[in-house]
Nucleic acid binder design. Structure first.
Lengths: 143, 143
DNA sequence: GGCTCGGTGTTGTCGTGTCAACGAATGCGA
DNA sequence: TCGCATTCGTTGACACGACAACACCGAGCC
């Protein structure tokens, strides 16, 4: 319960600053495609799914979202014509519309480019390797 | 405009996962104190300010927030009794209430503890040094 | 005085996210 | 058959943040 050491405070500050810098990835994608970060998450999950369709509960699992969040968001995406939902026995099936598929196709290269610009390019290759290793320690079981 | 290499995709995935893990810092603080992350930001800025009071525009500068966001948030914080606002020539002055000061005092050790638990403790000291260096490259001028 | 201008805050609207409450379908044991 | 829990999804209320539109005020200038 003591205050952070200077070194730890600097580490935290650096983390916060870097997080804000990397938030630019989502901003770039949004500007170029009109899709929010959650939009992209949903579109990518659906496109990678077998048959490009998923039960809503499976989508909740793969995104890690709560059911209510997913319900709200899919409703909005459906209103914008990106997905459609049909009742099936024991749940709801979500599918990409043609517009949704097109939006996903547009988003992918923009996203890749933004990641390269904001995360990959600023770091020498040695740092990138080290960073992966370190980041994984932050999410390791005994975190 | 080509897709990410496997290594770059892994780096991005590791970053996203770690970000979600470190979001737990705010969650911990919120659970323990009832304060959101923006609440804490405001409280800390005010407490460190000379005389524990700031012009609203100065607060906008130090937090990096838009004026409208700050206005909305201060209104809510004022309703909860954490700050009060008084008009002064050429602007509005924000001050901590007694409750606000107490909340800030409660939040500080909780925050420090959360940072230690989620960011500092999982990493050996060598990694912490490297991480600071790498993160700073992500926010360097030519980012 | 009357003028524009830049700076300061507020407000409304919309998209988003969380939480708790609810409703419908399913299964299962008494 | 009757309950009862589980799973699934929706809904409403609220907090939060971005954006644009607006009002206000003091400074400078005609």
């Amino acid at each position: 319960m003591e205050p952070l050491t200077d070194a730890d405070a600097e580490l935290w500050a650096a983390w916060v600053a870097a997080s804000e810098a990397l938030a630019q990835v989502s901003t770039d994608v949004a500007e170029a495609t009109g899709l929010s970060e959650p939009d992209v998450t949903v579109l990518m999950c659906l496109q990678q799914a077998d048959g490009a369709r998923l039960r809503q509960s499976d989508l909740a699992t793969t995104t890690g979202w709560h059911r209510s969040r997913l319900s709200h968001h899919l409703k909005r995406m459906a209103e914008r014509g990106l997905v459609n939902r049909t009742e099936v026995p024991g749940g709801v099936e979500v599918r990409l519309t043609t517009m949704g598929r097109a939006a996903a196709a547009r988003a992918r290269p923009v996203h890749a480019d933004a990641v390269r610009r904001h995360l990959v390019a600023p770091l020498p290759s040695r740092d990138r390797e080290r960073l992966v290793t370190i980041l994984r320690r932050l999410t390791a079981p005994g975190s």
